[in-house]
């Protein structure tokens, strides 16, 4: 029972009382390592209390390719997480600003993107487009979901297209890349944010480091594929510690509040 009170940081091996860790947003106070946290926890920490309204909660995955073991995997994930798929979408207020919100769930088959994830993201973006809302996405993912083959890959195009139409309405998309963000998700909606934020020391990439090393036959530089590395190489706009995430998102949303173009009308910035 006593062991349940403690968690050890996998980076610096400091022991933490769970209560303290929770209070510091699951960030190790010694080394800054960001523990992976689940989607419901993210919502609690990010959204104004009681403001989150979920959309498309009932969407569940089918098994279009009859991939062996896939249905079992989905059932297990649903039981383990208590949610239907690897993304939770909805509307909430962050420091009083109404925003469309998508949060990937790392515990659900590594938050990999299949048809349902792609569909929910697309529907959320369309909702935001229709209602003139900004959109914030908290992303971590293992990439496109292998078990749905080409259907998964297609989601990359689908989500990108929805975001294109969203952008045509001059609306703001902020994507927050958490540890780890990889594969087809990186190669699609994750990198389409107007503002792309990386969480401290998050691993963000497309292909895995081993594959890259074997392919190019070179040793990879230190810090390769970390958020800080990406920032240095111009792939991100900022690296933010989870402790400051809500405040910074609130600030970005507040700054970009505007009444978007009406037909031939004037844009008012606040």
């Amino acid at each position: 029972m006593l062991s349940r009170l403690f968690v050890t940081c996998s980076q610096c091996h400091t022991t933490h009382f769970i209560s303290f860790l929770k209070h510091s947003h699951y960030v190790c106070s010694k080394c800054g390592y960001h523990f992976r946290i689940d989607a419901p926890n993210r919502i609690k920490k990010l959204c104004d209390r009681g403001s989150f309204f979920e959309l498309d909660q009932g969407l569940k995955s089918a098994d279009p390719l009859n991939f062996p073991g896939y249905q079992q995997k989905i059932d297990d994930a649903m039981i383990a997480t208590g949610i239907n798929e690897a993304v939770i979408t909805g509307v909430a207020t962050i420091n009083d600003i109404r925003t469309a919100l998508a949060i990937l769930e790392p515990r659900f088959i590594m938050a990999s993107m299949g048809s349902v994830v792609g569909e929910k993201i697309t529907r959320l973006v369309e909702y935001a487009t229709d209602h003139m809302l900004p959109a914030v996405m908290i992303i971590s993912s293992g990439g496109a979901r292998m078990q749905e083959g080409i259907f998964s890959l297609m989601q990359m195009a689908k989500t990108a297209a929805a975001i294109k139409r969203f952008h045509e309405r001059q609306l703001l998309l902020v994507t927050v890349l958490a540890d780890p963000t990889t594969g087809g998700v990186t190669a699609s909606f994750a990198m389409l944010g107007d503002i792309i934020i990386g969480e401290t020391k998050a691993l963000i990439g497309f292909a895995g480091p081993r594959v890259i090393q074997q392919t190019i036959g070179q040793v990879l530089p230190p810090g390769f594929q970390t958020a800080e590395f990406l920032l240095e190489h111009g792939m991100l706009d900022m690296v933010v510690s989870r402790k400051n995430l809500k405040a910074i998102l609130g600030s970005i949303l507040r700054t970009h509040q505007q009444r978007p173009y009406a037909q031939g009308g004037e844009r008012h910035a606040r």
């Binding site: 006593l2 062991s3 403690f6 050890t8 091996h13 022991t15």
Partner: peptide, 13 residues
């Protein structure tokens, strides 16, 4: 190599 253990708050380090 491990040299020793320091027990802190019932955790073995």
């Amino acid at each position: 190599d491990t040299l020793c253990i320091i027990e802190a708050m019932k955790n073995m380090n």
